[in-house]
């Protein structure tokens, strides 16, 4: 049978469905409709109820397994599960999230299936070509496939999430899965601080750079992030100075983000930082230097001293929300 159809790999995060899955289903449904092909999904380490939601969000056929070996992400075990599903469904294109887990799994799948691989895809064209950033986002690579099966990871926030339609028709069945033992074992997990919003899926991000001056300066950045319900990001300069941990770093060496709103505080906009955030829909730059690259590219720029300005913005937001402002 010729490979046909789109397979979305739905990866749970600590047992919970990830919003990235809804984005994959949104992108996958559009591809499937354009090609008049079915949209499949495989759910390793999920439940029948979660599988049902995948149908209600656009999948025509879902294979799920609650096998205990898939509770935490294990690239060897998850590869076996997805390969078992791919064998049954014979999809032409396999879409995975652009997360650490998604990328790990994509690497193994591509080799197992002798498939061309494109990571961090942000656009699909009708011809089957895909676009992804290269050279630190300075260039867009247009990737063509020649393998019968194609594997791709999709950048978070690049596609609108599929809405849930209660009662949508589709089939969800349990995947027969008898895995061989893995040599990798997740022995424990320690979560980030409670209440911290992950950069990758954040709609709004407030980032601080060299201009925040020190760890104390990050307090203002965090206050603004809190007021906006935003994730906290940072430039390399701020991370390398030890003001904030690496996991907050946005840019070539850190995370790539596509929020609706990116507020850059005291970030001049070096090419390595722009690599990670220039696809933000809106950029607000707050900087003392109006000529720096970030201010030149911002949707809205304010030439201001961030120590004076950010508290005023926070107070203004609280005022609009009707929150009493401390004197």
């Amino acid at each position: 049978m010729n490979p046909q159809g789109i397979l979305v790999v739905a990866l749970n995060q600590r047992g919970q469905a990830s919003p990235a899955t809804w984005e994959l289903l949104g992108a996958g449904r559009a591809l499937a409709d354009a090609a008049k092909q079915p949209l499949f999904a495989v759910l390793p380490g999920g439940t029948a109820e979660q599988a049902r939601e995948l149908v209600e969000r656009g999948a025509d056929r879902v294979l799920w397994t609650a096998h205990p070996s898939l509770k935490e992400f294990n690239d060897e075990m998850h590869t076996q599960a997805v390969c078992a599903a791919a064998q049954q469904l014979s999809p032409a294109r396999i879409l995975l999230p652009g997360s650490v887990a998604g990328r790990s799994l994509a690497c193994r799948l591509a080799v197992k299936l002798q498939a061309g691989l494109a990571t961090d895809v942000s656009e699909f064209s009708p011809s089957g070509m895909v676009k992804r950033g290269a050279f630190g986002g300075n260039l867009t690579a247009e990737v063509e496939f020649k393998s019968p099966i194609q594997v791709m990871t999709v950048q978070a926030m690049a596609f609108p999430p599929a809405a849930r339609q209660a009662g949508r028709a589709g089939e969800a069945a349990e995947l027969a899965f008898a895995p061989a033992a893995a040599r990798t074992e997740v022995i424990s997990f320690s979560a980030e601080e409670a209440g911290e919003i992950d950069l990758g899926g954040a709609e709004r991000i407030v980032s601080g750079g060299r201009g925040v001056g020190g760890p104390d300066g990050f307090k203002a950045v965090r206050d603004l992030a809190h007021a906006l319900g935003a994730a906290v990001g940072a430039s390399r300069a701020a991370v390398d100075s030890g003001w904030i941990p690496y996991r907050h770093q946005v840019g070539l060496t850190g995370r790539t983000v596509r929020p609706k709103l990116y507020v850059a505080c005291g970030i001049s906009g070096q090419i390595q930082h722009l690599a990670g955030m220039s696809n933000a829909a809106n950029i607000v730059a707050i900087n003392t230097d109006p000529e720096c690259p970030m201010m030149q590219q911002a949707t809205i720029s304010v030439a201001a001293d961030i120590f004076e300005f950010i508290p005023l913005v926070v107070a203004e937001i609280k005022k609009r929300k009707g929150v009493p402002v401390a004197a």
Partner: peptide, 26 residues
């Protein structure tokens, strides 16, 4: 190979947007 980069393109440059200046900080 299973894939190739057919070509690279330069993404559109972002223009300068709204500049807020002139008033007091508040």
């Amino acid at each position: 190979s299973g894939a190739r980069v057919a070509r690279y393109t330069a993404p559109a440059k972002r223009g300068t947007g709204l500049r807020i200046a002139g008033g007091s900080a508040a």
